[in-house]
Amino acid sequence: MALIVATILLPLVPLVIQSFTRGYVFPQLVPAEWSTRAWSIVLATDGGTWKALGWSVAVAATVTALALLVAVPAGRVLGLRTFRGRRVLEFLVLTPLLVPAVAVGIGLDITFIRLGLSGTFWGVVLVHLIPAAPYAVLILAGVFANYNEDLEVQARTLGAGPLNVLRHVTMPAIMPGLIVAGFFAFIVSWSQYVLTLQIGGGKVLTLPVLLVSTASGGDVAITGALTIVYALPVLALLVVTSHHVVRAGLGVTGT
């Protein structure tokens, strides 16, 4: 466990150091000059970081919710039913991940402009669903493959209505998978640069878009600070969800 945490956090250490320096260059081993300049610029209320953070959270959260909404029924069919053509369908679900995002984005941009979706929140959400939804569907298909439908039948026999079945049987059983799928959808949306730039066009200015334009200037202190702002929410989410996954894992799953 400690090893995993170290693997995740160690790469961030140089960034943290870098973000508190000014003119930290080779061959200095220890920075010659410490400074909070980068942080005061990055965290300044008029600097755009907070707005970008807001956009990123709103987009990623919406994408996660919509991806799960699509993925639960789709994953259930793919995981529980055997039918001719299932493999083809699975492949089709995967296709958005096989085509480069740039190619998709250029074509979609024109369509989205015509639909009035370009440069809007919902346009960006929709385009993020293209790479995000397949991950969620695949993960939930895996979860449902190990799911025993008989439990639902039993609950129905004992008098539970559809809603109670969903609440007390289905949801607890698939919860760990739901969290993992949601986490993946969130991360995929959180890290989209090309599609956000193409469809968002600078109006929907998420953290990756801000980060790349900042990095083009070569100020490592500011880039470092912004990268930490970008990485922290995902790390926090990882901590929170891993806890849930472990706890839920002790519950109903594992048929």
Partner: peptide
């Protein structure tokens, strides 16, 4: 509303794409 781009050509492409799509007014740039 200052929109930062990594390269000015991104903004140029945005304009050209909008015009190509027939958005001749109310453009984003």
């Amino acid at each position: 509303n200052r929109v930062p781009v990594a390269d000015t050509v991104d903004a140029v492409n945005k304009v050209l794409a909008e015009l190509q799509a027939g958005r001749n007014e109310g453009g984003s740039v």
